[in-house]
Amino acid sequence: MNTAVIVFPGSNCDQDVMHAVAGSLGTKVRAVWHKETTLPEDTDFVILPGGFSFGDYLRCGAMAARSPIMKAVAEHGRRGGLLLGICNGFQILTESRLLPGALLPNRTLNFVCRPCFLRVESVSTPFSSLFSKGQVVQFPIAHGDGLYTLPEEELKALEDRGGVVFRYSDSDGLTGDDANPNGSANNIAGIVNERGNILGLMPHPERASEALTGGEDGRVFWQSILESFTKGGR
């Protein structure tokens, strides 16, 4: 599985995610500059990393979503290729309309960085297949604009089709308002598209990929992706 990490000006988790994927899976990871118009030909998995692309000026992810490389990224997704947006990458995915909804400023209006519990809601996606349904995992969050919002009917549709993959919870898996760090609708932390190949995730799995720095739950996340890829040959 060859991974391409798209680097936008202002991305700051690009190196981290490359480190985590290479460290967890030992597979090939390449950085791709946003001004490229094509992905490396053998790309199997594309990651839009976290950070503050274009300074988060105007709206988070808005300008990155219009970068030259994004046509190729969208095409990769449309063909069913694996595509993951983490944090700012999630914002870029919604701004690109590759995922529904939008991410608004946290309800506290403050940036928040801390470890966070997530409940795995769906294990039928390539990003979560090695977790068990209802399992509680810990990934850190670090964002100022993580409040996921969607018009009510669309939210219902998203829930009905099982599009919510991760939900903010407490350590027991309870998804009360106390466990919601940013005010997201239905405690939503991560969603997939209908086809199941594009995941947007506010928390950072790459920050939970080593015991020394943040824990190892993220390794299972990466391994899920590799296993699904290997099995499914996407």
Binding site: N12, C13, Q15, D16, H19, A20, G50, N110, F111, V112, C113, R114, P140, A142, H204, E206, R207, E210, L212, T213, G214
Partner: peptide, 13 residues
Amino acid sequence: YEQYDSMVQLNTV
């Protein structure tokens, strides 16, 4: 301190 990203770069033990 929760308003600061304390983890980016993956070195914070």
